[in-house]
Nucleic acid binder design. Sequence first.
DNA 1: CCTACCGATCGGTAGG
DNA 2: CCTACCGATCGGTAGG
Lengths: 188, 188
Amino acid sequence: MSRKDQIEQKATALFKAHGFTATSMRDLAHALGIEAASIYSHIRSKEEILQRICFRMAEEFFEGITAAVSEEGTAVDRLKNAVAAHVAVLTRNTEAAAVFLHEWRHLSEPFLLEFLEMRDRYEAHFRAIIRSGIHNGEFKVPDEKFAALTILSSLNWIHTWYKPEGKMSAQEIADSLSAMLLNGLRNN
Amino acid sequence: MSRKDQIEQKATALFKAHGFTATSMRDLAHALGIEAASIYSHIRSKEEILQRICFRMAEEFFEGITAAVSEEGTAVDRLKNAVAAHVAVLTRNTEAAAVFLHEWRHLSEPFLLEFLEMRDRYEAHFRAIIRSGIHNGEFKVPDEKFAALTILSSLNWIHTWYKPEGKMSAQEIADSLSAMLLNGLRNN
DNA sequence: CCTACCGATCGGTAGG
DNA sequence: CCTACCGATCGGTAGG
């Protein structure tokens, strides 16, 4: 692993643990066992690290959803695939996922704008699945946008408790969540 | 409104907008039209402001859930009441709710520990409702804790878009969310 | 509530 | 990758 990757990995852990602003370059240097000034041989600025984390995660989410929605099938199937893809990205790197979800607001322009546009395009894939399910009678929900955001919100807390060594696999988590979201709590 | 309340209100808005760490006492003073040093006539420290916001919101959530679970009824009814109470607190003060949800980790000990204990006791009320619903056959869910956290997660994104002047009232939002969570997306 | 100020720390650069 | 250092800013205090 290159020094640059090591910097990014340590920074990801610290950004998740204490937040971007509360993490100093000296904290990061200490975790790497070098001096703060030395970090700048590999990266241009503190924010560049955040940019790399946020946009790399965004790419991973897009790759997942693109594969999920390209398959044919019912809206139920496509939603299950989308949920599974989202959970897979979240669980593959929980630290980067947490930074992606909570620290993006410290991006400066024009990166912030680009980030928000990407996020909206991502959410649009979920809205489209909901919409098609409403149209063909598979789903019954009050509002397409409302439903899409509720789904994503219920997925995005996973990083707070998921452990790779835990008893549930990413696919099992995705299946449980899909079942809850599709069928509800009620014992029909 | 007392000066102390004004300070807390402005701080809440700034903490939500930029985060606790990224908000300086000079930013806060500027928003109030006074000098940074003057703030310390009313509060002891920057963190004290955060403590007051977080624990006041915690109290409000507890008041809501206590009233909701004290009523008799089915697990479905009690869950609807709990969701409505939670949404009511979230929508009554979206800025303080956002700070409560995202900035609590900047509390120092022993406040952090106390905060996390309170949060767990709050979540336990939701777990208890789910559990009783499972036992009497109203609910069918894979895991009680999993279900409770999914519910709370799907509620806690409201602060990102709720506007008091919007077309949906807090009760309508709560009803839509309860319906989605109880019945699922599927058109049964 | 202000002026004046404290020591500490910030992100980052120069030069080797 | 280090030493040495920059100007800016931080939370907070003294004294009025």
